[in-house]
Amino acid sequence: MKLQLEKIGRTLVARISGELDLESAPLFREKIDEALLEYEMINRLVLNLAEVDFVDSSGLGVILGRYKKIRSRMGSMFLVNVNPSVAKVFELSGLFKIIPAKDSEQEAIQSS
């Protein structure tokens, strides 16, 4: 898994590539939490999953954990570009109902 972070105003955009599983989940958690700790004003987290080709329950768990974190500071979270190959686990888990999916980073950054 590779992770690229960009701060745009009060939004943190995380562009992830590779696989989110038991091995990579701790690194993902660590990097996002570091950024949230460093920039206290961030109130929106956008996960761009365009380059993610595998997610299992460990990956979903760490995404849900970041959602709880951003919610605890009254922020919001969006998913962008969820691949068909991984969409099924998001649907089955009900995560789409909690964390809305958007078609582009721009849309996620602008939506309320």
């Binding site: 299992d56 329950s57 768990g61 686990v89 888990s93």
Partner: peptide
Amino acid sequence: TDPERMGLGLVFMES
């Protein structure tokens, strides 16, 4: 048993 995991492992295996 872990708050960051969703207990979905068995659900996915069954589904």
